[in-house]
Design a protein around this nucleic acid. Structure first.
Lengths: 251, 251
DNA sequence: CTAATTAGCGTAACTCATACGCAGTAAGGG
DNA sequence: CCCTTACTGCGTATGAGTTACGCTAATTAG
């Protein structure tokens, strides 16, 4: 009665729906502990440092003990991907959709920036955990007064998530690469210049000639600008869509 | 004279700039062979099947032989990421920028769809290989008649790449998950319905009530529609940007 | 008290990436 | 024609990773 047919195992775990058992020793470990330890480890040393052995060590348990609580390492990664994004701040009251979505996007970005390994996780399904769904709900809520159909809202939000996801991955990867060897990046323009043949890649050659890639310095800042630039373009498109859909011209 | 200071090693490899040596045995293996074998393997069995041992086996060589041609496995992955995307078809002559970018995007999508592991590669830098740069050049070329500054073009193209990249990753991951267990996906709406509390996630609950997630069947097709929807929104934004920038109002 | 149930863990099998050094091979110099 | 030189391929070994399996001990239901 409390549990109808079959929820996928990971989903149930994320929502804390375990069947409570009475017999046997009290567990000294909980899934939450494990996930928390794994996240701390990833924060400190990167996602590649997250091995079952290291997580167990951090908890003072043996490696195999973890498998009593988690089906596999991939399972653990899925749990991490939901737990890492804390619930979003509620949208300010009475703001228009555009302000709302901008606020939402900024929130995603700061949330993800706390866990730089996030973009390296192998995602394998649509959002299903409580935190991820809260973010989804928040974005949908920002569109509540637009008059869009539910389907339209979902389309807009999925496009936004796609863009944000892409930007996160791109910028995090670049930032990581930049941290690894700053030289290769500051010379990016120079490297390209030596390799690009203006006959074959004329448009790119012109960009290089204009020196656009010469001033690459850090990444955490330039990102911000690029990110916002693309975001505003997308939101402009959304604005057009809303107008077209909800206020048909009275021609 | 033929080789000035220091090109990053991977970049040189991608462009086939090896210093030719005369002495010693003729190599029985080339970087190209290795990369091709690795790509075939990834196409057939997924990126996780790509290990140095498996690639070498496929070539009839020993594992360690590969390291004569490739610095590390990561190096090999970088080479794969450039080699996997064959050069783009040239843009049709005389098309406007919007048609051009749509064409370009479709090209990226079909190119990537041939290698479904592509989105799982750990990218660690801006594009530098011949194929990747050809794609970049092609997109920039589509904007040649817009009157945008070089910097503006780069911004627009980077935003587009970000969106496409995000979409690719999302859709490929979903498709993979769908292939793994179709059940969980066809029940996605039902699963959410059981877990979403309308008090806490009201906007999401409404979407569910409208049945938006009920008709999830395949993914390769619905993707197309979602993808195009978001893309057109972004291009709408670009159109506004071009107008604003290049044809200032005569108020 | 007994039986059922479950947590933690030790062992071991397997797959990986890769450092290191040796052996053999082909070209250049005499 | 032979030796030097530089380079290729490969065998071995190390250390790290995931995880199947089965044992032991703890805990509670009856």
């Amino acid at each position: 009665m409390s549990k109808q047919p079959e929820l996928p195992a990971d989903v149930a775990l994320m929502w804390g729906l375990r069947d409570v058992t009475k017999r046997g020793p009290k567990p000294s470990l909980s899934v939450e502990d494990i996930v928390r330890a794994a996240i701390e480890l990833a924060d400190a040393e990167g996602i590649t440092a997250v091995s079952m052995a290291r997580v167990a060590e951090r908890l003072g348990n043996s490696t195999m003990a973890l498998y009593r609580h988690v089906k596999s390492k991939d399972d653990l990664l899925v749990l991490m991907s939901d737990a890492a994004l804390e619930r979003p701040d509620p949208l300010p009251d009475g703001v228009d959709w555009r302000t709302g979505l901008t606020f939402w996007t900024a929130g995603v970005l700061t949330a993800v920036r706390k866990h730089r390994w996030y973009s390296k996780l192998p995602i394998s399904g649509p959002p299903a955990g409580p935190n991820n769904l809260a973010w989804l709900d928040s974005a949908l809520g920002a569109l509540k007064d637009t008059g869009l159909s539910e389907e339209g809202k979902v389309g807009v939000v999925m496009g936004l998530m796609t863009y944000v996801q892409g930007e996160i991955r791109l910028s995090m990867d670049l930032a990581a690469g930049f941290a690894d060897n700053p030289d290769a990046f500051s010379r990016y323009g120079a490297t390209l210049a030596r390799v690009v043949d203006p006959r074959q890649l004329p448009a790119l050659a012109e960009v290089l000639a204009a020196g656009v890639f010469d001033e690459v310095e850090s990444f955490d800042e330039t990102d911000e600008a690029d990110f916002d630039f693309g975001l505003q373009l997308y939101l402009d498109g959304v604005a057009g869509f809303i107008e077209r859909t909800c206020q048909p011209d009275v021609t």
